[in-house]
Simulated scan of single mutants.
Amino acid sequence: MKEAQPVPAPVILGIDDLRPLPRATRIARTSGEGIQLLHDHRDSFIDELWLDHDLGGEDSILPVVTLMEEAAFNGRPFRIGTVFVHSANPIGAETVVRSLTRWGYRVRRTTA
């Protein structure tokens, strides 16, 4: 009889300067940390990616979005089940949703 393989825990990443994101397995607080987080998971499947637009001060999620767009442009998009955009900035959130949707990512606007 074959032994059942354990089901791997979902990979849920968050990039947000303030929110605790209790479901997240890892959280980045700046765009730089967010870019590193995606690089760390480059060759694995990310079940959920939670993005906030405004990351404190002059920082925003846009460098992360650019990285994701460039990856898709180069034919190697990040493998992500769903990207959730949960920003209190409606214009910024809509920009992220439109940009990533254009490149084939599955994106939903939501609240954290």
Rank of each mutant, 00 (worst) to 15 (best):
M1E: 05
K2Q: 06
E3P: 00
A4G: 03
A4S: 12
A4N: 10
Q5I: 09
P6Y: 08
V7F: 10
P8K: 04
P8Q: 04
P8S: 04
A9V: 03
A9H: 08
P10Q: 02
V11I: 15
V11K: 07
L13R: 00
L13I: 04
L13V: 07
I15N: 08
I15Q: 03
P20L: 08
L21M: 14
L21I: 03
P22H: 05
P22F: 02
A24H: 00
A24W: 00
T25F: 00
T25Y: 00
R26G: 04
I27A: 08
A28C: 10
A28T: 07
A28F: 01
A28N: 08
T30H: 11
T30P: 09
T30N: 13
T30Y: 11
G32D: 14
G34L: 02
G34F: 01
I35F: 02
I35D: 02
Q36A: 14
L38A: 09
H39D: 15
H39K: 11
D40A: 09
D40R: 05
D40K: 02
F45L: 10
I46F: 05
D47F: 01
E48W: 05
W50M: 12
H53P: 04
H53M: 03
H53I: 01
H53F: 10
H53A: 07
H53R: 14
D54R: 06
D54S: 11
D54F: 11
D54T: 04
L55N: 04
G56P: 09
G57E: 03
E58Q: 12
S60P: 12
I61S: 10
L62F: 09
L62T: 13
P63F: 01
P63I: 07
P63K: 13
P63V: 10
V64R: 02
V64H: 03
V64N: 04
V65L: 10
V65F: 02
V65W: 01
L67G: 07
L67I: 11
L67R: 14
M68S: 06
M68R: 12
M68V: 03
E69F: 00
E70S: 13
A71R: 07
A72C: 09
A72T: 01
N74C: 15
G75L: 15
R76Q: 14
R76C: 13
F78G: 10
R79K: 15
I80A: 04
I80M: 05
I80R: 02
G81A: 08
G81D: 08
V83W: 00
V83K: 00
V85E: 03
H86K: 02
N89Q: 13
G92K: 10
G92W: 00
G92C: 07
A93P: 05
T95S: 12
T95Y: 07
T95M: 15
T95Q: 14
T95D: 05
S99F: 01
S99Y: 00
L100W: 11
T101W: 15
R102K: 14
W103V: 14
W103I: 08
W103D: 14
G104L: 12
Y105S: 06
R106Q: 12
R106Y: 14
R108N: 12
R109W: 15
T110V: 13
T111D: 14
T111F: 13
